[in-house]
Nucleic acid binder design. Sequence first.
RNA 1: CGGGGUGUAGCAUAGUGGUAGUGUACGCGGUUUGGGACCGUGUGGUCCGGGUUCGAUUCCCGGCUCCCCGACCA
Length: 420
Amino acid sequence: MKQSQLFTKTRKEVPSDEVSKNAQLLIQAGYIHKEMAGVYTFLPLGIRVIEKINAIIRDEMNNIGGQELIMPSLQDAEIWKKTNRWSDDLVDVWFKSKLSAGGEVGFGWTHEEVVTHLMTQYIESYKDLPRYIYQIQNKFRNETRAKSGIMRTREFLMKDLYSFARTEEEHLAFYDACAEAYTRIFNRIGIGSKTYKTFASGGAFSKFSHEYQTISDAGEDIIYVNEEKGIAINSEVLADADLSELGVTRDELTERKSIEVGNIFSLGTKFSEALGLTFKDETGSEKPVIMGSYGIGPARSMGTVVELYADEKGIVWPESIAPFQVHLVELSGGDAEIKDYAEGIYDMFTDNKVEVLYDERDVRAGEKFADSDLLGMPYRIVVSRKTKEEGKFEVVERKTGEIKFFTEEELYQKFINANV
RNA sequence: CGGGGUGUAGCAUAGUGGUAGUGUACGCGGUUUGGGACCGUGUGGUCCGGGUUCGAUUCCCGGCUCCCCGACCA
């Protein structure tokens, strides 16, 4: 994409109403726009990052048998009353609205009720199980206090998967498979080395659940972690946890702030019993389906990456989720010969499906470099009179700042051959 | 939801009971051209409602907004 055509612009000043690094940088660079407290637009650059993350999530969810669908945001009160989660006294995050025709709807903040009710249509026999259903869809939560940029918002994207199993063993096998898939997802997104599968409160459903917590001072959670053993425990359940069972002692654990990027829950039969989701087993007796739910916040993950890797110059994207692999910057100074030369490289990349942002704007070098650093593509390729005369291209790695000079052949090898 | 703050141009900010200033961005002219360059010039602004006052952006009341701390976060 040609940068002159991008409708968003970078800003020199950080927005005064944002304190968190993720929001400041993402707004400054033109990835997101704040609409109101806890509500953000994802701009063209931002949605490219989100789609990269979503593609990784889809890949891993499909690999463990997930089937994607999309459920509605508008929620029928009836099914929520059956699980006793409609009342504002019991659930304080509801957004609700009146129907013109009479009655009331809610805006979905999770989807156990909807998906359970849905599956009553399709699950009748043990032959219909197990099933794994997921969506990537906007959730609405009436948070009393939105904060931390895109980390805690009132409308946010969530991948939520729901599992339906015949037996506890079958359920746990999938629970573990999903846990492993989550580990792969966070590795692929680039935050794996700082992300821990963490023991957390099981809530009303089971003794423990697991959260995926990424260590960061920008986090809102407190976990106790042993990095060598890879064991982490949310502070809220530390007192209840049997540490000897987990193979650690209290003084082997360090307190760290962390960001919850995902969670996995065993739900048991709470929802299936309340909503009548049963199946006939081999003997013909009717049993409730055993369920689990598994969430990841793609936007929150994006914010976490910014928090973890940004430097004083701007954002640093891992290659796996960068909106573009290459930021091609021409310093032609209006010289048509250099401009044509750079355009040729741009065409070479685009013809070979390499994602490239091409800065062909008629602005000074300093501004282009500053913008390029801020935007944070993994590689910057500079084309100028100097590089052309030397027959080389300057390739700067954003993460390390390392500068290399490539011939056109080497450029082709690195960015095109490696890509196919 | 409790407490504290905030609101001035697209953005960032200053100031004042009496015609609202600067930087940046933007338009135009010119000089520049490998790290947000410079000169000239121009456009553009006091959150909403009420009150006090000859006069309110400023003071008072109410509302809203956004931010921070706390609580909450199945």
